[in-house]
Write a protein that binds this DNA or RNA. Structure first.
Lengths: 320, 320
DNA sequence: GTAAAGTATGAAACGCGTTTCATCGCAAGA
DNA sequence: TCTTGCGATGAAACGCGTTTCATACTTTAC
């Protein structure tokens, strides 16, 4: 492997000059610059990035912590991060955690070991404080609403509220909700909105987990089997909502005549399924998180908007 | 930043001994080991991974080249890679390319610069030969069928054949297909299967691109507007097939009475949509590709199985 | 009892690019 | 003519952990 010193020898210059040529620094005479470039071609020299990282003391790499990749919400955020990272000539390492704390800790370890310069925590199991212990090693940006941290998020309380208000406006009183996980910050906010706004809110009308289409099918089956059925469901993911929708239709239930459904995320799927949904800018969450983690030097909180998109799975309550 | 030499000084040993302790080498006396561990705690020492990478001459990192993350096929493969990489204590860098050659070249550059030890090329725009030029720098594994390369793939010719045979068996003669991209290896294989097996195969019944649900909606609209309609569609992705399905149903077309649909991938969505599909083990593709790129030392070709899963979007042709 | 084998440890080299600091030539300003 | 000052360049230090090699002391083995 030829290195910068070989280059210097062949070109008849010092290593500093070679480095200057490599990095397009000024103050290099044309003839020497050409001699170096000639040597590079002759020896087939290729820069060792690892050495550059060590010498510069930075890796131009960030870490991304998320539970699953094969889930549209997370992959959309990841897409946003990837896009922005590419433009900024940054790389990113991903920790796909399944919400296992041990895996999240590995990402923190990488941060402290200076393998990554910052961390985007899309969703996590570990307490936020555990993350903040590592703040000295690099910026940590969350995609969930925690106090006193840099974060890019959507106000899920308000988002759920808008969905619930819509259902109430349509005359629904027996409303159920489906939450992705039991105890996440988002779920807590959403649950609060539920109990704040729905007079007849009931613990047994909260279904969880709601992450996959299969969860949707399960939720629909449960609904079918229950003797006191909500007339409307606000579901934390379009994917899950699609599962619910299809399973109910299969069972002969008419949507929205028999039950109203509202999804969440605004995934393209919701459009072809004509699902009413609360749309959020997932890619932008990722992009902004990347911007914060690389550019910002103070704690920043970015709240991105949501939008209730009414389509064909919601209507005025007709039955009891 | 305290380093290994500070540690040596404080512990009263040499740097070699410190390194031995850090790496659990044998041949370190207990008292010295403890002295080093004590020093580590005292000084709050944290290993610099970049230095380790440089010294060891390896990064335990591989690169992944794929066009999009927010697409279920790719994210499922990525999930497989991520899972396996975690177990092997490997990291991976991702190049999300949008099929832009320039972006793919950046991944190759990273390989040559020893930033990554190998490359998994899930799908690509650049000619395979362009990749193979870089084989000296590390193993390159494809997830598509190219000659003379390490690859993990599904036989898409056979896969499409099985779908087409099923449709023919059901009495369909006017069969259309939807391909993800015009000129990918997979599409070429699939197109060949189409022309080999379907007597009335027509160029105008090949629809492309077919990557997103929106593509599905577009394809369905085209079908609705055409005057000579295929009675069956074999679609290269469940996502797209879902889009087709929902859009046709919206328009009052009965599936499978008026048209049979077969999807591809075996995505969970196909189950709740009751879509007939050709199921392939996406996660396993990723996992095996990871295994090859890190463990194998010769060119290996792994062909993974597919399976036709008959559900409710296919039936005997009833109309003309 | 002596050779062979194993245990323990440190100095120094190594991987490799970047950056600081000193130096020197030469041109512009006084 | 003398002083600034900029342009150009190299030596050496730096970032930091790993590994090789030599050395020296203990144990086993015969």
């Amino acid at each position: 492997m030829t290195n910068i010193r070989d280059l210097a020898r062949v070109a008849g210059v010092s290593v500093s000059t070679v480095s200057r040529v490599l990095n397009d620094h000024p103050y290099v005479a044309d003839d020497k610059r050409q001699a170096v470039q000639q040597a590079i071609l002759e020896l087939g020299y290729i820069r060792n990035q690892t050495a550059v990282h060590l010498a510069r003391g930075r890796t131009k790499t960030i870490g991304v912590v998320l539970p699953y990749v094969d889930h549209p919400y997370y992959s959309a955020i990841l897409q946003g991060i990837a896009r922005r990272a590419f433009d900024a000539e940054y790389r990113f390492l991903m920790w796909q955690t399944n919400y296992e704390e041990e895996r999240e800790r590995l990402a923190l370890q990488a941060l402290s070991q200076r393998e990554v310069e910052g961390l985007i925590v899309v969703s996590h199991a570990l307490a936020p404080e555990e993350f903040l212990k590592f703040e000295d090693y690099g910026r940590i940006v969350f995609c969930e609403n925690h106090p006193n941290v840099s974060t890019v998020y959507v106000d899920h309380y308000a988002g759920f509220r808008s969905g619930l208000e819509e259902l109430i406006r349509l005359g629904h009183e027996k409303i159920g909700i489906c939450l992705s996980r039991e105890h996440s910050v988002n779920s807590i906010a959403r649950k609060k909105a539920y109990f704040d706004l729905v007079p007849d809110a009931r613990q047994e009308w909260i279904d969880t987990p709601a992450l996959t289409v299969e969860d949707g099918a399960r939720i629909a089956s449960r609904w079918l089997a229950s003797n006191e059925r909500p007339t409307a469901l606000l579901i934390a993911s379009d994917y899950v909502a699609s599962g619910v929708y299809m399973t109910l239709r299969k069972a002969g239930i008419r949507v929205p005549e028999d039950i109203s459904l509202i999804g969440f995320d605004g995934h393209p799927l919701s459009a072809v399924m004509e699902l009413t949904t609360i749309s959020i800018p997932c890619e932008e969450i990722g992009g902004e998180a990347f911007r914060l983690v690389t550019e910002s030097d103070k704690t920043e909180r970015i709240i991105l908007p949501f939008e209730l998109v009414s389509r064909k799975t919601t209507s005025v309550r007709t039955n009891v």
